[in-house]
Simulated assay, not measured.
Amino acid sequence: MNERNFTAVTYFTIRGLSDSADLQLPIFLLILLMYVVVLAENTTISLLIALDHRLHTPMYFFLFNLSSLDILYTTVTLHKILAIFLSGVSAISFNDCMTQMYFYISSVCNEFLILTAMSYDRYVAICNPLRYAVAMSKRVCARLAGVCWALSFIEAIPHTYIISGHLCFKSNEINHFLCDVLALMKLFCTDNKVLERFILVESLFVGIIPFFLTLTSYIYIIRTILRIRSNTGRLKAFYTCSSHLTVVVILYLTIFCLYTKPTSMVSLDSDKLFSLLYIVVTPILNPLIYSLKNQDVGSAWNYCLNKIRIKLT
Results as ranks from 00 to 15, higher is better:
120 Y>W: 08
120 Y>F: 13
122 R>A: 06
123 Y>E: 01
123 Y>P: 01
124 V>L: 09
125 A>F: 14
126 I>M: 11
127 C>H: 03
127 C>D: 03
127 C>I: 00
130 L>Y: 08
130 L>G: 08
130 L>A: 13
130 L>E: 15
132 Y>S: 05
132 Y>D: 06
133 A>P: 00
133 A>E: 12
134 V>D: 15
136 M>E: 09
136 M>H: 08
137 S>I: 12
137 S>G: 07
139 R>E: 09
140 V>G: 03
141 C>S: 12
142 A>T: 01
143 R>T: 15
143 R>G: 01
144 L>D: 09
144 L>P: 04
145 A>N: 09
146 G>F: 14
147 V>W: 08
149 W>N: 05
150 A>K: 08
151 L>T: 03
155 E>C: 12
156 A>D: 01
156 A>W: 03
157 I>N: 06
158 P>H: 02
159 H>F: 15
161 Y>E: 10
161 Y>A: 14
162 I>H: 02
163 I>L: 08
164 S>L: 02
169 F>D: 01
170 K>V: 06
172 N>Y: 03
173 E>Q: 11
173 E>I: 02
178 L>Y: 15
179 C>D: 10
179 C>P: 06
182 L>F: 15
183 A>R: 04
186 K>C: 04
187 L>S: 00
190 T>A: 14
194 V>S: 13
195 L>C: 01
197 R>D: 02
197 R>E: 02
199 I>P: 00
199 I>A: 05
199 I>S: 06
202 E>K: 14
205 F>T: 06
205 F>W: 07
212 F>H: 11
213 L>N: 15
215 L>T: 11
216 T>Y: 11
219 I>E: 00
220 Y>N: 05
221 I>Y: 05
221 I>D: 03
221 I>C: 11
223 R>V: 00
225 I>H: 09
225 I>T: 06
227 R>P: 00
230 S>R: 03
233 G>C: 06
233 G>F: 15
233 G>Y: 09
235 L>F: 13
235 L>T: 07
236 K>L: 11
237 A>Q: 01
237 A>D: 02
237 A>S: 14
238 F>A: 01
239 Y>W: 03
240 T>F: 03
240 T>I: 10
242 S>A: 15
242 S>Q: 06
242 S>M: 11
243 S>C: 02
243 S>Q: 04
244 H>I: 11
247 V>E: 11
248 V>R: 01
251 L>P: 00
251 L>M: 10
251 L>T: 05
252 Y>C: 06
253 L>G: 14
253 L>E: 12
253 L>R: 12
253 L>F: 05
259 Y>A: 04
259 Y>R: 05
260 T>H: 11
261 K>Q: 13
261 K>A: 08
262 P>G: 07
264 S>H: 12
265 M>V: 08
